[in-house]
Amino acid sequence: MKGNEAMAEAAIRCGADGYFGYPITPQSEVLEYFMAEEPWNRTGMVVLQAESEIAAINMIYGGASTGKKVLTSSSSPGISLKQEGLSYLAGAELPCVVINVVRGGPGLGDIQPAQSDYFQSVKGGGHGDYKLFVIAPSSVQESADFVKKAFDIAFKYRIPALILSDGAIGQMMEKVELFEQEERLTDEQVIEKYGSWATTGKTADRERNIITSLDLIPERLEDHNKQLQAKYKKIEENEIMFEEIHCDDADHIIVAYGTSARICQKTVQLAREKGIKLGLMRPITLWPFPKKKIAEYGDTKKGIPTPDEVLTAFEKHFM
């Protein structure tokens, strides 16, 4: 399966309630897969092609506000259009999944894979101080698995989750083992689980639920920001994911994620064959970032070369 298709199928299988998308290379297959697969017949899942990425992210806001499991996908320029929506989603603490199949930028850029949306993703591309849970697959298998993971984290902490893929992983075909179909929650189950905050209709037995990111009273907005920061701290303490390859005895360690990590893995292998003790540390969650782990390398390792430095070293040794 293609990475894009695997993510769509994974969404259906983890019981997603709705997908709202818009065409943009290199991720249109996500929307196309849904339209061909017709999950509304399989699980009752809603799929809609919106009139713009902006409309799509706001459909996510509407759906997530009712406690339903919703996701969208786009690629770099489209993700830029969604930044205001992401800020609202973070401010209103709404669980959802957004997939960015990154392409070259800035501007219209190209349709090749890239990692140039890294800062936008982990430092927050919209207004205000907020974080997204950012997870970066480096294979088609991970692309599928991380859809489920992203939803779990999103609902566990009520935070928007961003899957940071790229044009290569989205377009490449690889074997993938898909987890079993999970039942979608019924409306009653959604109300039972999330009725304390979600807008599912004000029944007589409770006060009305309001989903908003507005607070005109400065003190209250300040408290809200403090709450968000406390939540982010908790996520940083509990949800960091990374992978180490040959790091134990390595002198130098490369830090790379996604497609770059795959290339660097090969580099490590080649270096090792030449007796060079190189290792690879692959951050899987880009936020929360494995800062502590990398800091530890500082005591025992000689250095963390950048890919360019590795390239020049290779040219000296092997060319």
Binding site: A50, I54, A55, A56, N58, M59, Y61, G62, S65, E84, G85, Y88, A92, T199, T200, G201, K202, R208, N209, I210, I211, T212, S213, L214
Partner: peptide
């Protein structure tokens, strides 16, 4: 009633 506050102009999408 239960309400959601939309970004400027986006209410029909929600």
């Amino acid at each position: 009633i239960d309400m959601q506050q939309a970004a400027h102009g986006r209410a029909p999408a929600l």
